[in-house]
Structure formats: structure tokens, C-alpha cells
Design a protein around this nucleic acid. Structure first.
Length: 152
DNA sequence: GCCAACGTTGGC
DNA sequence: GCCAACGTTGGC
């Protein structure tokens, strides 16, 4: 089993929104970065654990836990001309962009970005690297265990 | 709103 | 294939 950070803007989909959704599940639409897409396509497995991270908001940080509950499949928003995620170069035959479904596990206290940065044990995490903008990043088992302990 | 850092595009 | 210009991300 792998662990991941997945960033979401809470104005778009927050951990509370996820908990309220039908089946408490959301398709992780809108990824438009090849590296992040490839993580979903090549490395994510059913049951992988997700740290649900709120970004681009007043208090960025970990807001809850979720799990991967589908394999990668085409992101429907790439075909929707009315969507901000529309990609005119993508076709049904050869879709560029993929998503996975993510299911709510639990809400946690907000473990803020500044708190995460305060732990030297986590300094090597991809998420905390200078200039890191990837919306999906892997987390080592050791770092995941450390974070889970801090969340409780 | 600013801006550093990064990714993508496209001319050559 | 290089790389300058441009667009985006996301914390502050």
C-alpha cells in the first residue's frame, strides 16, 4: 500500500464536501500535469491511503484522510467544452488526462503546512521541497507513519 | 495581489 | 533539440 498527498482547493472540494458526497466519493478531476497523471496511472493502487490536503486557502494543510477506490480512468472534464479543464487536444480515443476515485475515510484536525515544515523529520518530503507544486506526491511509509501519529 | 519556481509551448 | 517566452501554482 502506498501513501499520497492529494491537494484540493477547499473552495472547490473540501474534506467536508467529500464527506457529504454520495458514497463519500469524488472523482479526482482536473489534474493537468503529466507527472501527477502518471502517478495515478502507474503507481496508485486500490486502497492506497491519501492525505487530503487543502491548498490555496487561508490555512493550507492536511485536513483528513481518504483512500483510492478506483483505477485510473479518463477525466470527463477534458471533453467538456464548458469546463475550465477542457482540453481541445484530447480525444475519446486517446484521452490525455486521467483521474481516480477517492473515498472519504475521516476528517482530522488541520495539520497545517507550517506545522509540517516545523518537523525536521519531514524535511525531505516532496511536498515540502522548495518550489514543489505537484498536486499529487508520494509519501514514504516512514513519513506517513510520522504524520499519522501527529494527527491523533 | 505579489512573485518565485516550475511546466509547457513553439520558433528556430 | 534548444531555450526564451509565457502560463500556472500556491504560499505569503
Amino acid at each position: 500500500m502506498n501513501y499520497w498527498f492529494m491537494k484540493s482547493e477547499p473552495d472547490d472540494v473540501s474534506i467536508d464536501d467529500l464527506a457529504k458526497r454520495q458514497d463519500q466519493t469524488v472523482g479526482w478531476y482536473g489534474v493537468r500535469n503529466y507527472q501527477a497523471r502518471n502517478f495515478m496511472r502507474d503507481e496508485m493502487q486500490l486502497g492506497d491511503r491519501v492525505f487530503f490536503y487543502h491548498s490555496s486557502c487561508k490555512e493550507p494543510g492536511i485536513a483528513g484522510l481518504a483512500e483510492v477506490c478506483s483505477h485510473a480512468y479518463p477525466d470527463p472534464t477534458q471533453f467538456d467544452a464548458n469546463s475550465e479543464y477542457f482540453d481541445s487536444k484530447s480525444t475519446q480515443e486517446a484521452p490525455r488526462w486521467l483521474q481516480v476515485d477517492v473515498r472519504f475515510v475521516q476528517k482530522t484536525r488541520l495539520l497545517s503546512l507550517s506545522e509540517l515544515r516545523g518537523y525536521p523529520e519531514l524535511a525531505e518530503m516532496l511536498l515540502l521541497k522548495k518550489g514543489s507544486r505537484l498536486s499529487i506526491t508520494p509519501v514514504s511509509a516512514i513519513d506517513a507513519a510520522f504524520i499519522l501519529a501527529k494527527l491523533c
